[in-house]
């Protein structure tokens, strides 16, 4: 995996295939938290952090525990006792969804505890957003894209996770900037709240379509 490819993954995840505006992942926090700029910054940081970590951990789980390949740890363990077993007997790829979501849920809990212990100020900033992240479909979505869809290498997965987090934060911050202004606008009563937010998101998504021509 050369540097050019890594750059391509990063730019594509941030701009061209923005996780919120082009892939429709993480819409709930995108609409729920984007009313205030401070909150979106906090949420964004928490997502970048957890998404990068989750990309790394789920990649390891997938490659070393679920896929039927010689480096599978479960296979290696049984191989010690019975040399006749083959990797294909340990094809657990179908458990991937359940494994990933449990790993992500525990990871979020763990991160919450660790951050609380070692950095109270950081916990104060991110704390309330962390529990919301378990059900943020962007985290599981990125893990699935890394493994099932794109078969990225470890480094590519981590870079993809990190840049998808940046892309999420970018969309969130832009959105909250617009929504703070929108508070003062004269919107028809039935479009107040969610509908007008979707309209804004649609226009932003339209603008991001412009990055489509971007190619190295």
């Amino acid at each position: 995996m050369d540097f050019g490819n890594i750059m391509l993954i990063a730019v594509s995840a941030i701009l061209v295939n923005n996780i919120v505006l082009a892939k429709f992942l993480g819409l709930c926090p995108f609409l729920g938290v984007s009313k205030k700029l401070d909150a979106s910054l906090g949420m964004g940081m928490a997502v970048i952090f957890v998404m990068t970590l989750a990309s790394a951990v789920t990649w390891i789980i997938y490659e070393y525990f679920l896929l039927p390949i010689p480096k599978n740890f479960i296979f290696r363990f049984f191989h010690l006792f019975d040399p006749s077993v083959t990797p294909s007997m340990f094809d657990l790829a179908y458990l991937e969804t359940i494994a990933f979501i449990l790993v992500i849920a525990s990871l979020v809990q763990l991160v919450e505890m660790v951050v609380q212990r070692i950095s109270p100020p950081l916990y104060e900033a991110l704390g309330i957003y962390l529990p919301l992240i378990t059900t943020n479909c962007a985290i599981l979505g990125v893990a699935e894209l890394n493994t099932m869809t794109n078969h990225y290498s470890f480094i590519a997965s981590v870079v993809h996770g990190f840049s998808a987090g940046i892309g999420f934060t970018l969309a969130l911050i832009l959105m909250s900037g617009i929504r703070e202004k929108l508070e003062l606008a004269d919107v028809p009563p039935s479009l107040k709240g969610l509908p007008i937010a979707f309209m804004v998101a649609g226009l932003m998504s339209l603008a991001f379509l412009g990055f489509s021509g971007l190619k190295f």
């Binding site: 509908p195 007008i196 979707f198 309209m199 649609g202 379509l209």
Partner: peptide, 12 residues
């Protein structure tokens, strides 16, 4: 993607 956002905005 933008069409999806616009449709749901109008529907809601």
């Amino acid at each position: 993607p933008p069409g999806g956002f616009f449709s749901i905005a109008i529907l809601i």
